[in-house]
Design a protein around this nucleic acid. Sequence first.
DNA 1: GTGCAACTTCAAGTTCACTTGAAGTCAAGC
DNA 2: GCTTGACTTCAAGTGAACTTGAAGTTGCAC
Lengths: 156, 156
Amino acid sequence: MSLTAHDRLTIGELAARSGLATSALRYYEELGLIHSERTAGGQRRYKRAVLRRIAFIRAAQQVGLTLDEARAALADLPADRTPNATEWAQVARAWQRRIDAQIADLERLRTRLTGCIGCGCLSLTRCRLYNPADTAAQTGPGARYLLGEDPAPEQR
Amino acid sequence: MSLTAHDRLTIGELAARSGLATSALRYYEELGLIHSERTAGGQRRYKRAVLRRIAFIRAAQQVGLTLDEARAALADLPADRTPNATEWAQVARAWQRRIDAQIADLERLRTRLTGCIGCGCLSLTRCRLYNPADTAAQTGPGARYLLGEDPAPEQR
DNA sequence: GTGCAACTTCAAGTTCACTTGAAGTCAAGC
DNA sequence: GCTTGACTTCAAGTGAACTTGAAGTTGCAC
């Protein structure tokens, strides 16, 4: 009678499908990234749409969003159904800008490295890896992995 | 580039020049990423070559290395002098491969997103974002901000 | 109706890359 | 010689993203 095996997923099934650990799924739920229904006994049961949300979250992480930012981005998409083309296009385009910016950053670094190979490099005065005039600054607490600010105002 | 009495830097000077906090510099030293001499009174004094090492470390972080990996990479470069072209080229080329791989990952994601815009997407059966057959996904513990991201979306 | 894997909560632990704070010491300008 | 700011060590804290462990409960197959 219960075709429910098809229509709601246990946390273990969701873990298997999504590739995340059950602990991670509970953690995501605690953060409000995903949601579940409960059985009479208190166990979680997930709609299949949650798989979509998780795919979204993983992609968000790949473009460098924190889970908190991912949650904010998810707020623009419907919780339980497939987003329509308009809803999705809006999000996707924002991400494309992000991705493009990241690619540009990496290409800039690659260019600097290439220059360095040519110049027998890391010279204090000349090296462009060493003196990146172009730096996209950031200095938030948390995520501080960005070769960011350009200090050294006095070059003596 | 005068070799005055100031050919050694205090930790504060190094911090100002490198853009890192003094606490970070002590931490790097604790990890064995950089080294210092000490005054009679026990204060750190840094050779200017340390600035180069720091530039290297920051760039390493940008390409997604952990500090531990950066230390390993630094082992291929001389501690106190400018690396010669051969030494440097070897390292730089390894990094270029890394950078290229990262760019490729991002481009793959962007392609998937583009496809999704067209298809009114995130369909469970069709979506390529949702079903990335190519999971070259990095998700080891540590180093999760693999791509040099900036949390502020549109600031350049 | 029983056995047991899969679930539950809650607290605490982990890793990375640092920062903060306390308590004390050094270096240098006056 | 004094003062002051820059330094010292060591311990503990931070935050993101989870994981681990303990102790107990549920659901389903047999």
